[in-house]
Structure formats: structure tokens, C-alpha cells
């Protein structure tokens, strides 16, 4: 089944003891950077990622100005110390690609038409990396955008699924990503009902694809609940939930 390591034992437990549909522990915090307009920090398994949002602000260079909407910029970057072997800090092919998919995953949520002639910059800095850092980055970046008070149609939340042998599993860690048989990062807008990121590698049967995709969405909605908690904690002191606020207002 596996080439090098056995990723799942006979009881269906994975290397870190999780069952096939279990997530790694996730913690989210909003408003961690004082100098950014919005920021968030996520720790997801061994991932430690900080996202910052600056803007809306003036566009430089000026020729990139869009007269009717904001220019959304995203940068995904891995710190040199984020991996075992020092990583060259220059953006790699992989980081440039991930910057692009993060930008495109956030673009449908941000109402860019409300901020004409401006730039909104999203910086995703990976301080420690594990599997699924792009979906963790997207999850943190959307929190940072909400913290910055940019008009958004919905939050964006990501989760990855994959294959170990022929078994669909949720939330791959680094080893499973490298040694496993497939990886599928998915980002969704949970209320709007839109998939904003879907990347796949590996060979899936039709049934497995369906199962992995649906599992990613289900887990994404679970993480969306954590996003809500983090924002509530930041802005309402963690006490009143949204429903209570609604009651109080009526």
C-alpha cells in the first residue's frame, strides 16, 4: 500500500493517533498585530501562521490602480526557520503559486467595489510549517480581513482532505501530505455556498473524490465555528454570542 511508511495502523489510527475524520488541534486569535489594520494568528497542528491586512490604502505603483475597485494583493511567505532545513527567504515557485491561490480564494468574499482606487494587502507569514498551510493561511487571512473591517460577503475558511492508500482522511499533516496518496485543499464561503479554492493531487476514484470533497466542506464548516468564536472574543469580549446580541437588540 504505502511506499515508505505505514501511515495508518490496523485499527484505523493515524501516525499521530487521529481517526480518519479527525482534525488536528486548532487555535485562532484575532488582532495580534498592533501596527496592522487587521491581523490574526492561527495554530493548526504544527502550523504557526500570522496573517496581516493593510488597507485600503493608496496603490503604488500608480499604473496598477483600478478605477472601479480595490486591488487585492496577497503574499504567502515562509520564514527561513519555518522548516527543518533553512529555507531561502526569496519567494519560491511554490510560494508565488500559493500567493495566487490565496488571493483568488479571498477575492470572491471581499467586496472590492466598495474601495475604488485603493489596494488591500494581505500578508500571510508562515512561522512554522506543517501540512495544510495554505488552507490555514486562508482561514487566518479572512479573519484578518474581518478584523480590518473590510466589507465581506462571507468569511472564507479552508480545510484539506486527502488519501492514505484508498482511505479518505481529513486534514493531512506534513508526513501524510508527502507520503500519502493524495491531497485536496478546499476553501469555502460557508454561508454564501461557494467553493473558492479546490486543488487536487493524487488519483481518486469518483466515490473517493466525492467523499473527500464533502468531508473537506464539513470540516471547513466546523472550523468556521472556531472563526466565529475568535471574532466574538476579540470584539465582544467573548461573552455575548451572536444570538444573544440579536435578542438584546430587539
Amino acid at each position: 500500500m504505502e511506499s515508505k511508511k505505514k501511515l495508518m495502523d490496523d485499527n484505523g489510527k493515524r501516525l499521530d493517533g487521529r481517526l480518519w475524520d479527525e482534525l488536528r488541534p486548532i487555535s485562532l486569535e484575532v488582532g495580534v498585530l498592533k501596527n496592522a489594520d487587521g491581523s490574526a494568528h492561527i495554530e493548526w497542528g504544527k502550523n504557526k501562521i500570522t496573517a496581516a491586512v493593510y488597507g485600503p490604502k493608496e496603490v503604488h505603483p500608480k499604473h496598477q490602480v483600478l478605477p472601479d475597485r480595490a486591488l487585492l494583493r496577497a503574499r504567502y511567505h515562509m520564514a527561513p526557520f519555518s522548516v527543518d532545513e533553512r529555507k531561502n527567504p526569496a519567494p519560491s515557485r511554490r510560494e508565488i503559486e500559493i500567493s495566487k491561490v490565496i488571493r483568488e480564494a479571498l477575492q470572491p468574499a471581499v467586496i472590492v467595489e466598495d474601495y475604488p482606487r485603493t489596494a488591500i494587502e494581505v500578508w500571510v507569514e508562515v512561522l512554522q510549517s506543517d501540512g495544510g498551510s495554505r488552507v490555514a493561511g486562508i482561514t487566518a487571512a479572512s479573519l484578518a480581513l474581518a478584523d480590518a473591517g473590510i466589507n465581506m460577503r462571507d468569511m472564507v475558511v479552508g480545510c484539506s482532505c486527502g488519501l492514505i492508500g484508498e482511505t479518505v482522511v481529513a486534514d493531512l499533516d506534513d508526513t501524510e501530505d508527502k507520503e500519502g496518496n493524495g491531497d485536496m485543499p478546499v476553501a469555502i464561503m460557508p454561508n454564501f455556498g461557494l467553493v473558492t479554492l479546490l486543488q487536487v493531487d493524487g488519483i481518486y476514484t469518483r466515490a473517493n473524490f466525492q467523499k473527500a470533497f464533502e468531508l473537506a466542506i464539513e470540516k471547513g464548516k466546523q472550523i468556521y465555528g472556531m472563526q466565529r468564536e475568535a471574532l466574538t472574543k476579540r470584539f465582544f469580549g467573548g461573552e455575548p454570542t451572536t444570538t444573544q446580541v440579536e435578542e438584546a437588540a430587539e
Binding site: P56, D147, G149, M152, E246
Partner: peptide, 20 residues
């Protein structure tokens, strides 16, 4: 936006908590 909602006689309102 993140904010407090008010639903009343004069319609639906959202008082945002953050923003430029």
C-alpha cells in the same frame, strides 16, 4: 462587517465594530 445588529421599526441596521 463584524458588528452589532439592530432590527427595529426603522429597518435593519448594523453598527460595525471596526473599519476604515
Amino acid at each position: 462587517r463584524v458588528g452589532l445588529a439592530e432590527v427595529g421599526r426603522d429597518g435593519v441596521k448594523l453598527n460595525p465594530m471596526t473599519g476604515p
